[in-house]
Design a protein around this nucleic acid. Structure first.
Lengths: 228, 228
DNA sequence: CGTACCATTGACGACGGTCAAAAAACGTGG
DNA sequence: CCACGTTTTTTGACCGTCGTCAATGGTACG
C-alpha cells in the first residue's frame, strides 16, 4: 500500500512542471489534471483512500480500474461506483472522503492535490464551472444508481451491462475488470443471482459469455426491453 | 397549478426589495433567499416543476411539504426526497430539473430566481461556498438513500422513521405529511409492506401509532438495533 | 500438475409482492 | 353534529423472486 508520504514526494516532482502563478485560462480540468498530477502505481485490492480520511487529493484513472465502497456495520458492502481509465474520482464537497477506494486490478492512478485544483478554479472560472459540472455528473450517477436499485434482479444486471457497454470504447464487447461479487455489491443482489441472471440472458440469446469476464451483447434490442 | 408567468409577476415585486448591485458580504444563503424570493401558494398534489423543465428557480419550503420524484417507463415511481419547512430544493448543476416536484399537502413555497442566486454567489464568495456545500449535502443525502435501498424492508422503514425524527423539531413525536404510498415509493417497497412493518414495530413496542400519520418512537434503542 | 480462487449450478426456504377484502379515517353536505 | 361516500390504511391469503447454503466446475498461477 502506498503511503501519503509517497504520494507527496511523487507530487513534489510533478508540481514543479506547472508554475502555480502562471495564468491558465480556458484550459479544461481534464488536461489540467494531467499536467498537475503524478502517476502512482497501485496493485490489485490496494486501498487508495479510506472512508473518513481527509480528501486532500483528487484522482484520475490512467490504467486499470477502481471501486469506491462503504461497509455497513453488519459487514454488507455497497459499491458506490466503478471508475475506468479516464475517469476522475475522489473529488468531495466536504473535507473528508465519504467512501473508500480500492484498485480492482493493478492500476496506475494520477494523483493531484485538491488545493491546487481549487486554486486553479479560483483563478480560472472555466475550471470552476467544470468542477461544478463534475459534481453534477456525480450526483446524476448516484441518482441513476437509485433507479437501478428499485428494479428486479434481471433488470439490474441488464442496466449494469448497458452502463458498462456505454462507458466502453468498443461497441458490444465488454471486458469486465471486476468480479461477480463486485457486481453483486454494486447492484444490491447476491453473486449467485448475478451469475444465474447472466446464464439466463445467455440462454435467451441476448448475450454471449465468451469467458467469465468477457461478455458480448448480441441482442441490444431485447436487453433494452428488459431494462424496464 | 401555478404558471411560470405567475411566478414571474410574484417575483417582480419581491426582487425590488433587494438592489442587485448592493454588496452583501458574509450573509448566509438561507437568509439571502428569504429576502430575494416571493412566497407562492401550492395546493395538495400541485406540480411545482416537472422533470426536464428549465431549472430557472430555486425553492424553499415555508409551510407544508414537498416530494421530488421520477416515474419510470413502466409506471413505477421513485421518490427522491421529501422536503420539510426550511428545506431548500430545486437547485441543480445542469440547466434542467432532473426530478419533478409536487406539494404533498397545501404548501407555501418561497421561489427565487436561480440567476439572482448565482449572481450573488459571484459577488460573495461565502455564498458560493455555501452553494457548494448545499450540493454536497444533496449528494450525501442521495448516497445515504442508496445505503437504505440495499437493506431489508424492516430496516428501510426504521431508517425512514429515524430520518424523519432527526429532521423533526419535537423529539420522539413524528407527524408524517406523506401517505403510505409516498413512503413506499421512497423506500422502494410496497405500501402494504410499509403498513405491515409499522404494525409489527408497534407490536414489539418500538413505536406507537397514535393515528396513521402520527407516530411516537417509544424505544429508540431497539430501533437503532433494527437499523442494522 | 496441483492448488487456490472464482464462477456456476442446485435445492430449499423466507421475505416481500400481488390481489382482494375489511376497517378506519377523512371530508362534505344535510 | 351526524350520515354518507370516498380515500387511505390495514389485514389476509397466496405465490414468485431472490437469498442462503452447499457442491461442482472452471481458470489462473505458481
Amino acid at each position: 500500500m502506498l503511503t501519503q508520504t509517497a504520494i507527496r514526494s511523487g507530487l513534489s516532482r510533478a508540481t514543479n512542471n506547472l508554475s502555480s502563478r502562471a495564468p491558465m485560462l480556458n484550459r479544461s480540468i481534464v488536461t489540467s489534471i494531467d499536467l498537475m498530477g503524478a502517476t502512482m502505481p497501485y496493485e490489485r485490492d490496494a486501498e487508495i483512500y479510506g472512508e473518513g480520511e481527509p480528501a486532500d487529493y483528487v484522482y484520475k484513472v490512467v490504467t486499470g480500474s477502481v471501486r469506491t465502497y462503504k461497509v455497513l456495520t453488519d459487514g454488507r458492502r455497497q459499491i458506490g461506483s466503478f471508475y475506468l481509465p479516464g475517469d476522475i474520482f475522489g473529488l468531495e464537497t466536504g473535507e473528508n472522503h465519504s467512501f473508500s477506494a480500492e484498485a480492482i486490478s493493478d492500476a496506475k492512478i494520477l494523483v493531484v492535490e485538491r488545493k491546487a485544483l481549487l486554486a486553479l478554479a479560483a483563478r480560472d472560472s472555466e475550471v470552476g464551472r467544470q468542477l461544478w459540472s463534475m459534481m453534477g455528473q456525480e450526483l446524476k450517477r448516484v441518482q441513476d444508481h437509485i433507479l437501478v436499485l428499485i428494479k428486479t434482479a434481471k433488470e439490474r444486471v441488464v442496466s449494469f451491462l448497458l452502463e458498462m457497454a456505454e462507458r466502453h470504447p468498443n461497441g458490444n464487447d465488454i471486458v469486465l475488470p471486476m468480479s461477480r461479487q463486485d457486481i453483486a455489491d454494486y447492484l444490491g443482489i447476491t453473486m449467485e443471482t448475478v451469475s444465474r441472471t447472466l446464464t439466463e440472458l445467455e440462454n435467451c440469446a441476448s448475450i454471449k459469455l465468451t469467458s467469465a469476464r468477457h461478455i458480448v451483447l448480441c441482442n441490444r434490442r431485447a436487453l433494452g426491453l428488459l431494462n424496464s
